[in-house]
Design a protein around this nucleic acid. Structure first.
Lengths: 125, 125, 125, 125
DNA sequence: GTGGTCTAGACCACG
DNA sequence: GTGGTCTAGACCACC
């Protein structure tokens, strides 16, 4: 469910946050479904529970999940978050495309890449 | 020429590296033109010369510039670098577009964003 | 009668305590009226009877209710409690107003807020 | 500068966050002035550096301070934050006054308390 | 020196 | 069992 990349410069907790937020935004996790417990996930990934704790806390702060002491952590499925994320994503794409244009990438080349993406069959991993 | 953002999470030297590599790749700096000396640039930006030194080292390591002892540092204008950078950029765009697709962004929406980018007059920032 | 907020950071039992003490202090519950039984309330709220038990214990400890073995729990309508609560409330208001003053809130602004509160028709929530 | 209350139910890091945000909002700390280093403050308060780290991280997240690796942490003096905080404060006061009203506190009593607050000479502690 | 991340292990409150 | 806080101590990147 979660794959860690220790060579990645980003901290582990951030990778976990990104992975879960992705799953939630894609709708791969249903609303109010329970996440693995802090201790279990820590064992599974062979890392310290504190690191999971931190990731979950960040996810809660960002509105992706909510945690109840003594019960567990659950997905929040906030539609507003998804909208914002999509907007942000489009902005990033725009920025990247702009950079490419400045470096001499042709319009058709970009279009082809986009077309390729949408040819593929969407897959949940 | 260089604007530092102290509130940016990235280290200063990385900001400098990115700025120069951008200028070089976009062709804003001609080949073999001389960069400001470590000491001058450090003074101008009011930062430690070590930080500039580190940025220049990194730029040299990546092939963007070359240094001649006692003479200074010069832009390398390496075409291979530009090709790689463009490839990398396209990969990133592909990844972002894929994410958008998984989150329900429509094909046309992406195409429109790309079109918009190419309608604008290219500008240096 | 009782609404639980699972996303609230405060423990369930504390929410129950607060709700009952509020009802009692406001006079919404008459003196010596019987509270729902631990078992019934637990069923109604779909939570563990232990949690209700704990809430009732806390309410008894604070003097809001009294329990008779085999009979049930009853409201205490303790006038002293109400006086203390009012004093505590005034202290809190004083503290908040002081904070506001330190942050530059004008005297008139506070007075207006207070006036507004007393213009409204009192409502039970 | 910071006083910890170990009897307080709130976690230590939260007390630190509150204290600093108060000082910043009141203007007791000038903009861009350096905060004590994580290690120093930890030593001074005889607590673990991680706890300070967490407090500073939270302060940064909320926009009260900004931290630069290798340099230190600095106050941000964000005016928007102050405005929001004042609004929030007025809301809280309104709520408390409403509670008091429901419990039989007279209008004049509240007004007197407010007047008292504004009679006092403002003091920084 | 600075902030930032992580581990190991403990204790608490909650259900 | 659950999440939340804290300590002690380590290592890293940055300046």
């Amino acid at each position: 469910m979660i794959l860690l990349d220790y060579k990645d410069r980003r901290p582990i907790y951030e990778q976990i946050v990104e992975r879960f937020s992705e799953l939630i935004l894609k709708g791969a996790l249903e609303a109010d479904s329970q996440l693995p417990s802090v201790r279990n996930l820590a064992m599974e990934l062979s890392i310290n529970p504190n690191t999971i704790q931190r990731a979950y806390q960040e996810l809660e702060r960002q509105g992706y999940i909510y945690s109840i002491k003594g019960r567990g952590s659950f997905t929040a499925q906030n539609e507003e978050l998804a909208v914002n994320k999509r907007k942000e994503l489009m902005k990033e794409i725009k920025k990247k495309v702009g950079e490419g244009r400045d470096m001499g990438v042709e319009f058709e080349e970009v279009i082809n890449v986009v077309r390729e993406c949408y040819k593929e069959v969407p897959k949940d991993d």
